[in-house]
């Protein structure tokens, strides 16, 4: 009872601090500090309740235990990260997004193919494509190649749909202007269409970052060498080493946000002129 009471008081106190901060203004510093305080509060409460109620570590390990598992297993986690993220997800991401981009440019001059591919791409993007994983594992073996293959298929369609839509983003006035300049097709493509499509292309790239990581991890549930994030999650679950599972989830979360953040930074550098980036 005392423990719950302490938790509630702590929560209300931290919330009051945040409320006070939030109503003082919306400077950059406050916008960063408030969510950080909130995050720290949640983690501290988690630690406090696990300790106070003596929760079985098989159910929910304390943040400190997860931190210990993380620090104590850095070589293993790093090897898993290389296997799943760099070899599986990143390779697949580059191949898949690259192929989708090239397809979109290739069918750019054929409205027929665009009208055909766009609905199909939209349809496929809503399907549970992860299910293709067991087939890819059968075709390409247990290694990272099968994971990359799953990722290629998962990111291809969202990326294709976004790029095709982006290529349509110019208005008639701009196209007429290019025509009065007597611009050739490659010139129109490089100087007008692709820059105008960039916000859409980056949107596709951002959606694909998460899909790539999901594909690479889930594909490992269907068979993998004895290294990899999905493999580790599955085996450590079998041994009820929940702190290690959580450490792996922390790695996945960091990798996912860092990947997403990197693409966002690239977007900012490449489309600095776009209204959505100037705000």
């Amino acid at each position: 009872m005392m423990i719950l009471l302490g938790a509630i008081i702590f929560w209300l106190a931290m919330w009051a601090v945040n409320a006070w901060l939030a109503h003082r203004g919306s400077s950059r510093a406050i916008r960063i500090i408030v969510p950080i305080i909130f995050g720290i509060t949640v983690v501290a409460l988690w630690e406090w309740l696990v300790w106070g109620w003596d929760i079985n570590p098989v159910l929910l390990p304390a943040p400190s235990a997860i931190y210990a598992a993380f620090i104590g297993n850095i070589p293993t986690l790093w090897a898993d990260f290389l296997q799943t993220f760099v070899q599986g997800a990143l390779t697949g991401y580059i191949i898949g997004c690259g192929a989708a981009f090239l397809t979109a440019v290739a069918i750019d001059r054929s409205p027929f193919l665009q009208r055909g591919l766009l609905p199909i791409g939209n349809f496929v993007a809503a399907l549970p494509i992860v299910g293709i994983a067991p087939i890819m594992v059968m075709w390409f073996g247990f290694g990272w190649q099968s994971k990359a293959a799953v990722v290629v298929i998962m990111v291809y369609f969202p990326m294709l749909v976004n790029t095709v839509q982006g290529m349509k983003a110019t208005d008639p006035m701009q196209r007429d202007l290019m025509r009065t300049y007597a611009a050739s097709y490659p010139q129109r493509l490089m100087k007008l269409r692709l820059p105008a499509a960039a916000p859409f292309i980056f949107n596709g790239l951002k959606i694909s970052t998460t899909l790539a990581l999901i594909g690479a991890i889930v594909a490992e549930y269907f068979g993998s060498p004895i290294v990899g994030m999905g493999f580790r999650i599955q085996t450590e679950l079998g041994r009820l080493n929940l702190d290690m599972v959580w450490a792996e989830i922390v790695v996945a979360a960091i990798a996912g946000t860092a990947f997403y953040g990197l693409v966002t930074l690239l977007e900012r550098a490449a489309t600095f002129w776009h209204p959505s980036q100037r705000g």
Binding site: R31, P35, F38, T210, V218, I233, A252, Y260
Partner: peptide, 19 residues
């Protein structure tokens, strides 16, 4: 808004299915 929203947005980039 200021405490929760950034976490909701960040969580979009996390492969939640993994858990």
């Amino acid at each position: 808004d200021m405490s929760v929203m950034p976490w909701v947005i960040a969580s979009q980039a996390v492969p939640i299915v993994a858990i």
